[in-house]
């Protein structure tokens, strides 16, 4: 269980990025955090990762306070951030340096096979495509088997086709060990495809605005009417979080009225 209790963050330059964010995320849940720019979603993720410290409130995983990077928490960034001087295999094994060599090599080989890049084990990161590099980053984060995996707009730099491919792939990998996933995104489609629950945030200062249970069976059909309905609920919440005046169950013809 990951428990966020009134987490707030004010940067030294006075920017009030996040205010009293509270959420309980049970083990194995997939949560998407979505919101306009400046709503503090990346700030929140960095605090959970232990990269930045929250100014107020507490972040606890299984009753352990998080204020520095923790072994139970992994993170995948928007860019792959592979170490260019290590081969693909060594990049994946980067977090396993405490293991004996044989065990490490076996885990890395498994992970490489799992993300379908066994033939690239000895390649340099510069030789990978964007999608391949991000798959290596996912493998690197998953190989130490974190309980919580944070994803900061992980697919936003990829083309639409690769993005869908990786979303499905991520769900596949998630099913292996079922870690908690917290995904920051600005892509409504991505949120609804992946998440059990969507948290919508509103900006200035960043705070929780709405919570939407997706409640669709997996695997999800991106073309089904139910999928569309959830997407519309998220979009409406997003619009309202930005103070755009949208009536609750807006009929299509009045949606256009606010602009």
């Amino acid at each position: 269980m990951l428990a966020l209790d009134k987490v707030g963050k004010t940067y030294p330059n006075g920017v009030h990025a996040l205010e009293r964010f509270t959420a309980q995320i049970p083990q194995g849940e997939i949560v998407a955090i979505i919101g306009g720019s400046g709503c503090g979603k990346s700030t929140l993720l960095r605090a959970v990762a232990g990269l930045d410290r929250a100014s107020t409130g507490s972040i606890r995983i299984d009753n352990i306070d998080i204020n520095a990077p923790h072994e139970k928490i992994g993170i995948i960034f928007q860019e792959p951030r592979l170490l260019p001087w290590l081969s693909v295999a060594d990049n994946i094994g980067f977090g396993l340096s405490e293991l004996p060599v044989a065990a490490r090599r076996e885990k890395v080989a498994q992970a490489l096979a799992r993300v379908g890049l066994s033939d690239k084990a000895k390649a340099w990161p510069r030789e990978l495509s964007g999608g391949q590099a991000q798959r290596v980053a996912i493998a690197r984060a998953l190989v130490p088997q974190p309980e919580v995996l944070l994803l900061d707009e992980p697919f936003s730099a990829l083309d639409a086709f690769t993005r869908r491919d990786l979303q499905d792939h991520l769900l596949d990998l998630w099913a292996d060990t079922r870690p908690t996933l917290i995904l920051v995104t600005h892509d409504v489609d991505e949120a609804v495809v992946l998440a059990d629950r969507v948290l919508v945030m509103r900006p200035r200062p960043g705070r929780l605005f709405a919570e939407i249970d997706v409640g669709l069976a997996r695997p999800r059909d991106r073309a089904s009417p139910l999928f569309d309905a959830v997407k519309r609920r998220v979009l409406t919440a997003l619009d309202r979080s930005l103070d755009r005046d949208v009536p609750d169950s807006a009929p299509a013809e009045t949606v256009g009225a606010w602009w």
Binding site: A49, G50, L51, A68, P69, H70, E71, G74, I75, F77, E79, R81, L83, W85, F94, G95, S97
Partner: peptide, 27 residues
Amino acid sequence: RKIVEVGRTFRLSGPAMIRRILLPAVL
């Protein structure tokens, strides 16, 4: 800084950070 953050998320100690991130990056 982004590469250094990768080292931080894997909880590298000061010397390990120097050896595994800074040295190769500076080479």
